[in-house]
Amino acid sequence: MESLSFEYRGGRPLPSAPPVTLVGVVGSGNLEVMVEPADLGGVCRIEVLTAAVGFGPIWQAVMDDVFARHPVADVRISINDVGATPAVVSLRLDQALDAFTGGQP
């Protein structure tokens, strides 16, 4: 297992703290994403626990792309992965962030 951490600044805080959002299921051979409000001083922090060791640069590229589409602040995202493809990771993150923000850009 590999643990990766990413932080992004410059996002927009949400007007009100939404409830924790969970999408996906690790047991399906895929991944799960949990998004929750957190007092992080304007940072979006993403923690990844993955069975696919050695793919840090690919995770970085996917996280950069997702943050460009969903620039949120004071949000913690936890990802538990058992080998999902980058496209599935991106899809699950989009689903989770859309649900978390209520579709706000």
Results as ranks from 00 to 15, higher is better:
residue 43 V to F: 01
residue 78 S to V: 14
residue 40 L to I: 10
residue 38 A to S: 13
residue 41 G to M: 05
residue 96 A to T: 03
residue 17 A to Q: 06
residue 37 P to E: 02
residue 19 P to V: 11
residue 4 L to Q: 03
residue 77 I to T: 03
residue 51 A to G: 03
residue 44 C to S: 12
residue 82 V to F: 06
residue 36 E to I: 01
residue 63 M to A: 06
residue 30 N to G: 14
residue 47 E to R: 05
residue 62 V to M: 11
residue 50 T to D: 02
residue 30 N to A: 13
residue 20 V to E: 11
residue 22 L to K: 13
residue 50 T to W: 06
residue 102 G to V: 01
residue 66 V to K: 01
residue 80 N to G: 14
residue 70 H to P: 03
residue 21 T to K: 04
residue 85 T to R: 04
residue 71 P to L: 11
residue 39 D to P: 04
residue 24 G to S: 07
residue 87 A to C: 11
residue 99 A to W: 00
residue 39 D to I: 08
residue 77 I to H: 01
residue 93 L to D: 05
residue 58 I to D: 14
residue 43 V to A: 13
residue 105 P to K: 14
residue 91 L to Q: 05
residue 56 G to P: 01
residue 35 V to S: 00
residue 31 L to P: 10
residue 44 C to V: 04
residue 6 F to D: 11
residue 22 L to F: 04
residue 68 A to R: 15
residue 28 S to C: 03
residue 22 L to A: 05
residue 49 L to Q: 12
residue 49 L to K: 12
residue 49 L to V: 13
residue 101 T to K: 00
residue 3 S to Y: 10
residue 16 S to D: 04
residue 33 V to P: 08
residue 42 G to C: 12
residue 78 S to Q: 13
residue 98 D to A: 12
residue 47 E to P: 00
residue 26 V to Q: 04
residue 79 I to R: 03
residue 20 V to R: 14
residue 6 F to K: 04
residue 89 V to I: 13
residue 17 A to F: 07
residue 70 H to I: 04
residue 94 D to W: 02
residue 87 A to V: 04
residue 8 Y to R: 12
residue 6 F to E: 14
residue 37 P to I: 02
residue 66 V to G: 11
residue 25 V to G: 06
residue 77 I to R: 07
residue 74 D to P: 07
residue 6 F to Q: 07
residue 75 V to N: 00
residue 58 I to S: 10
residue 58 I to Q: 14
residue 75 V to G: 00
residue 29 G to C: 10
residue 15 P to V: 11
residue 54 G to H: 05
residue 101 T to E: 09
residue 64 D to V: 09
residue 14 L to W: 02
residue 86 P to Q: 12
residue 85 T to C: 10
residue 16 S to Y: 07
residue 89 V to E: 01
residue 97 L to N: 08
residue 92 R to F: 00
residue 87 A to K: 08
residue 26 V to P: 01
residue 90 S to A: 15
residue 81 D to P: 07
residue 34 M to E: 14
residue 60 Q to D: 15
residue 94 D to Y: 00
residue 83 G to D: 08
residue 90 S to C: 09
residue 57 P to C: 11
residue 39 D to T: 04
residue 27 G to P: 05
residue 53 V to H: 13
residue 68 A to P: 10
residue 59 W to G: 07
residue 81 D to W: 02
residue 87 A to P: 06
residue 90 S to T: 08
residue 80 N to H: 12
residue 92 R to A: 07
